[in-house]
């Protein structure tokens, strides 16, 4: 398998372009995806290749184009809906939460909804409180949808291709802070299946579970902690729904300690869900309760220093690992 090094955004573009070449039902819709080549240049060149009928610019009207796309999906097309930011998806909450994930159920199986909603999720760019949403905890609460959150260009491409082929609505959470990172991606076509976590760093002393961008902080923390003699096993969950709890459980059974790092707020979150499941499955294996590192329970600040302090970061993760392993 030959590989080359490409950016995260190129990996996303390749996934969409390859699937659009393979399947005429697939199209991309969103604000500035066509003529402007994407607000973040993810869809650069796609208008030229696929034309305005398959790469469609919309007005600033998330509720409208999300709802329209759900209708298209119900009628047999396979839309990719780009939200410039998941923060903007909130105005489309009714179609994306109240229609898409429930359509198959409420129509008694008559209408599925094979749609992908994708866009930037999470803070870190001094975008202020209203544009810094991490939607995973809030949206993962809804039955009927799937949720993927890639961490490398390889996974960005492989997971997005799986998302486009999936017959259920998939919430695909990217990060503006990751779009320019580079990574090795095969020339050949491939997919990354949902529900398979990956151990990004093996270790014996404490399990750290995370998704997406905070994994970088986890790996940074693991490096620091290794110098202190604490070898962390860092698990990339890759998809939140479905959740590969088995890989997490196997690791915690080995290490007896678990820290969950989740870039959403702590209350009723992905982090609390994982902690709950770990407590359920690993009760007899735990030497301490699961500890969690989340956003602080405040709206994202605009000031750079405050924003960095509010988010999960390597220092907080180190502190949590030391505390959970009684090394504080």
């Amino acid at each position: 398998m030959t590989t080359r090094t490409i950016e995260f955004r190129e990996a996303l573009r390749e996934a969409m372009s390859e699937e659009m070449r393979e399947d005429l039902r697939v199209f991309l819709i969103g604000e500035e995806v066509a003529q402007y080549n994407g607000a973040y240049k993810v869809s650069r060149g796609m208008l030229d290749e696929f034309g305005p009928k398959r790469v469609i610019d919309t007005p600033i009207s998330e509720s409208g184009f999300a709802g329209m796309s759900i209708g298209a999906a119900m009628m047999g097309l396979r839309p990719i809906v780009e939200f410039m930011s998941w923060s903007f998806s909130l105005v489309a909450a009714d179609p994306i939460l109240n229609n898409a994930p429930k359509m198959l159920y409420m129509s008694g199986g008559q209408f599925g909804c094979p749609i992908v909603f994708r866009g930037n999720d999470g803070a870190g760019g001094q975008l202020g409180s209203t544009h810094s949403w991490c939607v995973e905890s809030m949206f993962a609460n809804v039955p009927g949808l799937k949720m993927a959150i890639p961490f490398t260009p390889y996974d960005a491409k492989g997971l997005l291709k799986t998302a486009i082929r999936d017959d259920d609505p998939v919430f695909f959470l990217e990060s503006e802070r990751l779009l320019s990172i580079e990574g090795e991606v095969p020339e050949e076509s491939y997919t990354v299946p949902f529900g398979q976590a990956l151990i990004r760093r093996p270790g014996t002393d404490c399990t750290i579970v995370s998704f997406g961008r905070p994994l970088y902080f986890c790996l940074e923390a693991a490096k620091t902690l290794a110098q202190e003699g604490i070898e962390c096993e860092v698990i990339d969950g890759r998809t939140i729904k479905p959740l590969d709890i088995d890989t997490i459980v196997a690791s915690v059974r080995k290490t007896n300690y678990c820290v969950v790092v989740d870039q959403s707020w702590s209350f009723a979150s992905v982090g609390s869900e994982i902690a709950s499941q770990v407590h359920q499955h690993c009760f007899d294996d735990l030497d301490n309760h699961v500890m969690r590192v989340h956003n602080d329970d405040v709206p994202a600040p605009y000031a750079y220093n405050l924003e960095q302090e509010m988010l999960p970061n390597a220092r907080k993760i180190c502190e949590a690992v030391r505390a959970v392993t009684y090394n504080a």
């Binding site: 007896n256 009760f283 007899d284 294996d285 735990l286 030497d287 301490n288």
Partner: peptide, 13 residues
Amino acid sequence: SNGKMKVSPVARH
């Protein structure tokens, strides 16, 4: 000996 002490599950195990 087991009832009133604080013992982590894995320690007890």
